[in-house]
Each structure stands twice: as structure tokens, then as C-alpha cells.
Design a protein around this nucleic acid. Structure first.
Lengths: 144, 144
DNA sequence: TATTCTACCTACCAAAGTGGTAGGTTAATT
DNA sequence: AATTAACCTACCACTTTGGTAGGTAGAATA
């Protein structure tokens, strides 16, 4: 699996902030309701985005999160790498992977490397701006 | 992770059979030694390949496995789908996935769908024949 | 100053998946 | 009959996933 809920939720939250906060801070309570994601679970994902300066936070009333940059500057691959740790399709290509020892004569390594390259290339070609509300898309219902 | 050891081992075993058995049955003991894979673990993977007619087996002395078809007829995507169950990069695209309910307004679904398409397209474009020993490749050492 | 709202931090946890091991049974060959 | 090798079933330790619970810290407002 390239992406677990962690990375996917992070993406959806960023898109939600991009669409609904207009430069203002937006409370996670609202995002969680719209995205139907557990608030508590989201709270575990957000600090990662803060520490890498993807979003800025403010405590207290009227606080919440807002984007640090323009939506067009957020590459999906980058977001997934931060939240998932790695997006390599196989264990032996992960950045923390131990040397296999069989690399010199591994028949499949070149294929995995090429697959990895194609996945990264595609995910890095898509930005948050690309994923924002298309004209023909409905807004999600606000379920309280 | 698109592929766990199950799928990767299946691939390596099929390539090993393609390279080393020449139409003859080949014992898993030998493949396991060359590929440095636990024989017992391999034994759990092989029956899947038999039941889908990728390989044929024979019991007893001089028995083992051999390919049912020409190496060029084995697509990597097909092998991974059999052994992994699914190669979708995200849970909501798996064949057994429950309807999300948010699909109509999910901003990320089209991207995941396209990523899934690209992964499948690439993996289905590679065959076992493509992965067999290149001229500049060493044979793995036979570790007893 | 007290209250309220919100981010943030820590600990815990159930379920599923991963990557095996162990031991025995069946079938084919010598 | 003995040997060899596939095959079947059960078990298991470890990690990841996807959370929940409860409390703390900081900022705004009344």
C-alpha cells in the first residue's frame, strides 16, 4: 500500500483548508465534521504538517490552522512522504532499508526502481491546487 | 506497500524456474537455496501458482515445479494480483473495498484512480521474460 | 481574572497483516 | 519398501494500522 489513512487524511485536510479557510485560521472541529474523520485521529496528524511548515497553527478561540503557502506549492508526493514516512512500493527501496546483498544479481530490482520512479513522478506532478474543487463537483454535506 | 514478500518471492521463484529448469521439473529445495528464501515459506506460496496454472508440479524424486507457459506470457501485474490479492495503492480502490459514500465529492479519488491505472499499466507491461538474466548479470552464488 | 475554545501531548489498545516455523501427510519415483 | 518432494494445517511473534481517552498549554473574549 502506497498510502494509508494517515497520508490520505492529511491530503484531504489540506484540501479542505485550502477550499474553506480563506487565509483565516480554521478549526479542526469543522474540518473533521466535513471530512468525516475522527477529530482525535486528525490531531495526531497535524503536528507533522506544522513542524514541516505546511500549515501554521493558532491556539484559542478563533484559532486553528491555515496554509503556509499557496495551494499550487504543495506536491502530493511531498505530503505523502512526510506523513507516511515513505512511499516506496516495496520494502527494499525504502530509504531506511538495509542493503539487500542480492542487489548485484537481483532480477527484479530494476523493475521496482522504475515503478518507484513512475509513482514518485506522478505524485510529484499533482498539487493541492489541482485537487481543489472542480466546477462540476459537489461540496460534501455538512454532517453535524 | 504495493508488494509484500509474498508477491516478490513468487516473482523471484518464477524467474529462477524460468532460468534454471529447462522444461524439466525443478525442486524447491534448490530454488530456496539460490534465492535464499525459507523453503517452508515458499511452500505456502507455490500452491496458489499451481491452482492458477502458472506452474505444474510433480511429487516424489525428480519432481518439483516447471512453468506451464513461455516466460513471455507471464505478466508481473498478473502474478502480483494472484499472490498479493490486490495491488491497489490505496484501500478504497481495492476490489473488495466497501463503497466509500464520499466518492461523489472526493477530491482525491480521481488521482488515486489514475495512479492505480499507471501502476497496473506498467506492471502489466513487464513479463518474466523481460526479467530473466541480462547478459551483464551475474548468477547468484549457490549458497548451500 | 475567569472562562472558553483550540491546539497539542502522552498513553493505551484492538484488530489485522506480515513473515515466518513446525510437523505431519500424500504422491511419485527408484 | 524407501526415499524424495509437494502439500496441508496449525501456530506464533512482531509490526502496522487506526484509532480512543484524558489531560495540558496557550490564546482570545467576557
Amino acid at each position: 500500500m502506497v498510502s494509508s489513512t494517515k497520508g490520505r487524511y492529511a491530503l484531504r485536510v489540506l484540501i479542505d483548508i485550502a477550499e474553506n479557510s480563506h487565509g483565516e485560521y480554521i478549526a479542526m472541529k469543522d474540518v473533521a465534521a466535513r471530512q468525516e474523520i475522527s477529530l482525535k485521529y486528525m490531531e495526531k496528524i497535524m503536528p507533522v504538517l506544522v513542524s514541516h511548515d505546511l500549515v501554521e497553527s493558532s491556539h484559542g478561540k478563533g484559532g486553528g490552522y491555515r496554509l503556509s503557502h499557496d495551494p499550487s506549492e504543495y506536491r502530493v508526493g511531498e505530503i505523502l512522504r512526510l506523513t507516511e514516512g515513505d512511499i516506496a512500493p516495496v520494502a527494499c527501496l525504502q530509504t531506511d532499508a538495509a542493503e539487500c546483498g542480492r542487489n548485484a544479481y537481483c532480477r527484479t530490482l530494476p523493475m521496482w526502481t522504475e515503478l518507484n520512479r513512475r509513482i514518485s513522478e506522478y505524485l510529484d506532478s499533482v498539487t493541492i491546487a489541482d485537487l481543489m474543487q472542480a466546477p462540476d463537483m459537489k461540496q460534501p454535506p455538512v454532517t453535524e
